[in-house]
Amino acid sequence: MIENYLAVSSLGVDYWHQGKKVRALDSVDLTLDRGKMGVVIGPSGCGKSTLMSVLAGLNTKYTGQVLIDGKTPTGGLETALILQDFGLLPWKTVWENIVLGLKIRKKNLSEIKGAAEIILEKMNLIPLAKRYPAQLSGGQRQRVAIARALVLEPKLLLMDEPFSSLDALAREEIQDFLLEIWEETKLTTMLITHSIEEAVFLGQRIFVMSPCPGRIRKQVENPLAGDHSLRGRVQFVEMCSLLRTYLHGGRRETYETDA
């Protein structure tokens, strides 16, 4: 009986750098239930992206066990991966980018058209359908990238620092948007970020990582996530502060949370 949709136990990954063996991930354990949004946070170089590539099935040279819905990830068609850059092809319009995955999966034309129209409508992208990525703002581009992933109806959505190149305002806008989408689809989502605010706003379960080698330092349950008005609340600031403390290795430093 599998309870967790995503289950990683004692995951270890090594890679070779200039003739030396480097441990990227070490005894990583994490679980995420179906329909939940998990967030991995940590400083750069802590192996967040390595973890993501293992979950996406792009990296198969690991030790330990990784199970998604009880199966080893193979980069199959049930997982969608959204990256910060290079998600969209600059020589295709928004529409062509969105239908590309369906075309590759040999869906018939009316099916493709129907699915793409629904997703464009849902994501307010209809006025942008004929534009090229270069004609979009950063936030619009990420919306298209999300649309392109969702149109394939994945079971698991993986996002590797999807919003880190956006300015603060566009970032909050698309976080709100992602939350709406998640509420509607209840898609199991794993997001990587280095933003504490993003982690608290979105992550129902937050995994705090420490670098060299990458380990999960702390697993935080975050019941606050999912509240659209959260950013203005005292609890939000407190949670951010707590997370910051964990990121600094448990030392409270100057961040006092007890008010």
Partner: peptide, 11 residues
């Protein structure tokens, strides 16, 4: 990056 992103769609 373009190649791997399209590959991940099952290309």
């Amino acid at each position: 990056g373009y190649v791997s992103s399209v590959k991940s769609l099952g290309a």
